[in-house]
């Protein structure tokens, strides 16, 4: 196994690392005997979890003082590299803050980024995998210049598996002087009420699309999701229309989900959507149009009106 270090951006969330961060740490172990995690906030408290998932070092950028993570965390990573550290690659979760760090770091280091990766293997050099055209094709790519390469990886690309390692050694990593670029400050957090699991973690995902007919019909999708203890998702079309927020979007420009079952309601199956959900274990689709592309990948397809099928489904699920 290669001994050149691989670094993983490990995002803190509610006293733990995010699941995608743990997936990346787990996979990094298979590529290098020297894995380091980079985090911020109360990083030291997560040394045990970082070690458990394979990191021997935890670089801690510390308290960001209300700044968005992108600028200070990228600056701290660039600082470590300027100080002589030579990671072969830096793996970053596809997330709001992860994408900020990747963009800032790329421009600071003048290094390229490969994004939307769903696979990463060592084939003499690191080779990334990217699904394109709705997931019908897989592009494999590599960096063609000196490292470190920055790879932004989709959720659920790898399994998160603890390896039982000792707590990682915590090393402070300072962002240094940042100036005007770091002037964006978080004034307040607003938590929207959510019942049930997060979209990317849920075993059951129920998504709605244009076929719902009107914004208010999305309540049917949410109700089915609730009754199945799942999460509610959406196609790009209804996010663009302003029916639901971007955080619900499944697909190429949204989230990747791989639930036990994905229930697509009134979603025709544009390539943009399919790439985000075709890794689901089982797919059920309800759509009026018998020729909708979603039926080509559905294990069970119901040709019908979601406004009729969903209320009937809700009635049956409630009765159980």
């Amino acid at each position: 196994m290669d001994s050149a270090p691989i670094w993983v951006l490990a995002e803190p969330a509610e006293g733990s690392f995010t699941t995608t961060s743990l997936e990346l740490l787990s996979h990094a172990r298979t590529l290098s005997s020297d894995v380091a995690a980079i985090t911020w906030g109360a990083g030291g408290q997560l040394a045990a979890q970082a070690g458990e998932y394979g990191a021997s070092t935890l670089y801690d950028v510390g308290d960001l003082g209300g700044a968005l993570p992108g600028v200070p965390v990228a600056a701290a990573i660039a600082g470590l590299i300027a100080g002589g550290a030579a990671p072969r690659a830096i793996l970053i979760p596809t997330s709001y803050d992860g994408r900020d760090v990747a963009g800032r770091l790329s421009a600071r280091l003048d290094r390229p980024v490969l994004t939307n990766a769903t696979g990463l293997a060592d084939d003499g050099g690191l080779v990334t995998e990217h699904p394109v055209f709705g997931g019908s094709l897989v592009v494999r790519a590599r960096f063609s210049a000196e490292g470190p390469g920055i790879v932004v990886v989709r959720a659920k690309s790898f399994a998160a598996e603890p390896a039982g390692g000792a707590p990682a050694a915590v090393v402070a990593a300072s962002p240094g002087e940042l100036g005007a670029t770091n002037a964006a400050a978080i004034a307040a957090h607003h938590v929207e009420e959510r019942t049930g699991p997060q979209l990317e973690e849920a075993a059951v995902v129920v998504s709605g699309g244009r076929g719902l007919g009107e914004a208010s019909a999305y309540a049917l999708v949410e109700e089915v999701a609730g009754l199945l203890h799942g999460a509610a998702g959406a196609s790009r079309a209804i996010v663009d229309a302003g029916w639901v927020p971007y955080s619900r979007q499944v697909g190429q420009t949204g989230k990747t989900v791989k639930p036990t079952v994905y229930l697509a309601c009134g979603i025709s199956g544009a390539t943009q959507h399919m790439v985000g959900m075709k890794g689901s274990k089982n797919i059920v689709a309800v759509n009026k149009d018998p020729d909708a592309p979603i039926f080509q990948i559905a294990d069970l397809g119901i040709v019908g009106d979601v406004q009729k099928v969903l209320p009937a489904l809700i009635e049956r699920l409630r009765a159980r």
Binding site: S95, A184, A187, A188, H190, V191, E192
Partner: peptide, 9 residues
């Protein structure tokens, strides 16, 4: 936009 809602920035 955040995973849990939104931040005022």
């Amino acid at each position: 936009q955040t995973e849990l809602g939104y931040d005022e920035v």
